[in-house]
Design a binder for these strands. Sequence first.
DNA 1: CCATGCAGTTAACAACTGTTCTCTGGAATT
DNA 2: AATTCCAGAGAACAGTTGTTAACTGCATGG
Lengths: 208, 208
Amino acid sequence: MSHTLGIRQAQKQKTRQALLDAALGLLEEQSLSSLGLREVTRAVGVAPTAFYRHFRSTADLGVALVEEALGSLHPMIRTTVSSAGDSDQRIERAVGLIAHHVETHPAHVRFIARERHGGVQSVRQAIQGQLARFAEEVKAALAKDPVSEGWNDDDLLMLAHLYVDQMLMTASLFLDALEAPEEERRRVAQVATRQMRLISIGREHWLD
Amino acid sequence: MSHTLGIRQAQKQKTRQALLDAALGLLEEQSLSSLGLREVTRAVGVAPTAFYRHFRSTADLGVALVEEALGSLHPMIRTTVSSAGDSDQRIERAVGLIAHHVETHPAHVRFIARERHGGVQSVRQAIQGQLARFAEEVKAALAKDPVSEGWNDDDLLMLAHLYVDQMLMTASLFLDALEAPEEERRRVAQVATRQMRLISIGREHWLD
DNA sequence: CCATGCAGTTAACAACTGTTCTCTGGAATT
DNA sequence: AATTCCAGAGAACAGTTGTTAACTGCATGG
């Protein structure tokens, strides 16, 4: 898209991405608040001072990682929540998509789960912001569903938040079961499916 | 209870507690994986090497903090879940208890929320263990409720986990709203109450 | 009362951290 | 072709870290 980058800016973006990738790797066994800038540059094979050409601090890098991890997820969220089929089919499809995303982007998922309540305020805020956007999108999708007839805005949003949090919780459980035998992963999927099913049942009887 | 400690062991436990308290304070604006042992001893006013008389490492101290933060919570959980009244009354009472606990032990709550998915494995495991115990206790309480007639063990446990996670999520939201005006805190309480109510409705219609 | 135990101190270590300033080579601009 | 720009390198800084060893003073148990 847009314009072809000069050989110069291209190289810059390349090392920037290398810094992001290296950081994400190092963050699998520690928190952002203990990630050192030298540690990152060492992993990339670049001088410590080069870091400053791309980020003010490791906290700044963390905010960029939030964008990378969650920014591209919005289309998936939208298509998932507003997909066709009956309630059970949509739930199973959603759980499957979560499982697949955890398998293909484990480090990103771990980073979000870890730093959502982590020790770096700016990163926490960035994650909260993205999750709030998710909730708004889920709310919009729910509003279109005939089941939501008669619901007020506050209740739609509270249900949307419940779904988003449940999604994240499920992702975290899949993450813990990544190296486990498939039996365990299927158990996680089953529990998640039933929890979402229970929530959906509550939703259907909310206005009684 | 038990035996009166000698003047010696009493002093030891005193500095041990001072280390735990200082660490808990420092952990309000960082994660355990970046907490330094010297940082803690400096805050207490004691020599760095004194740390080793009590803990092998900061990770070890973290495990002790998990015990302190969650160990004493089991009786509260039990009495809450198995209290009297109809569904709505019990929910409001539970949300109120959570809010109160966050107000009286904010640092403990923050620590648990932060390190549940944090960068230190042993601490994560300790928290997972305690939460699993909570879930078992909630399950036992649910099993006694007439609403749970006909439920199998797996479903009882999946519902118990849903309640426990929802409890933690609510606690974390109360934490974020601690310094906010009361209006915001009341809004959090309202959302949490309705989410639990929706879950309870789903529970009542589970076997349909 | 005396010997032992042990919580906490002192000093020193090698290794590491974030940040500054100066420099360089090559792409970008004119 | 000459000039400017700038991503990255290099060296040096003051300050921090975890861990070791040998110590001191005092409560404890014989």
